[in-house]
Amino acid sequence: MAHGISVIALLLMLGASTIARAQEPELPVSEVAPGIFVHIGVTALMTRENEGAIANVGFIVGDSAVAVIDTGGSVREGRQLLAAVRKHTDKPIRYVINTHAHPDHSFGNAAFVDPGASFVGHKNLPRALTMRGQFYLDGFRRTMGDALIDEVRLVSPTVLVEDTLKLDLGGRSLTLKAWPPAHSDNDLTVFDERTKTLFAGDLVFLTHIPVVDGSLKGWLDALDELAAIPAERVVPGHGAVSKWPAALADERRYLNALAADVRALIASGKPITVAAETAAASERSRWQLFDDYNARNATAAFSEMEWE
């Protein structure tokens, strides 16, 4: 009898994992404008528990096709996003757009590999994946575990955006723009003309402290051009869907404070370690994950601004 129960338990375990693989639950999404669906990530670091689902991901449904914008921080999240697409439309996914190389936006790519889908990214995205991909896989294995990381594949884009590119989803035109180095050196934005919705990727952060992994000066330079985009709302890389361009205010204030503090420290001959401890301290209470990223932002900013 005990024998039979053990076997059934084993079979149930096996069966459950097979089913989970084939059919993930849907990622909760909301329709923020007609045909625009967004999942808001939790404001946290990527962990085994949150399955890497910390960035905003979404999709846009046209008359004949769908574009997915970012795929999440694990293949599991990617499959859940795919299930959400399938719940809302049976139109084919023609484009999978990565706003940049960071793992919370691209680790889910493998869930969308399909002969009918083209992967789209900034012209620098393949290089970034080459230079950083293995390090990301090794690093996140530590915090997310083997089960989630084993199935991650780095999928490079085959459609590269040099400056701007228009994609047609059938009666629905998306304008993609490749930016000079700012948050990273491979930032791409997606603008939906029909609803005036901007998917800004990590060029826009709300609530989650901005992360500088490209060029602080470049990012500050990009803010005015970003603000001029005639959008009504923004889907930021992290934080709530918000009115545009008012959503830029917090980020602008933080980046300016960081730049001003770092420049003053350099001018007075302070070493880089002091920047890590003190720069942008006035911003601490205004952001989540401040202590996880501010010292790193200050370090990166210092080594950039030293060359001014």
């Binding site: 960071h102 970034a128 230079m131 690093g139 530590r142 915090t143 996880d292 790193r296």
Partner: peptide, 13 residues
């Protein structure tokens, strides 16, 4: 080692 999205690679190639 660092967490998050930093990597021991150049930021602005």
């Amino acid at each position: 080692a660092s967490g998050g999205c930093s990597a021991p690679a150049v930021k602005d190639a």
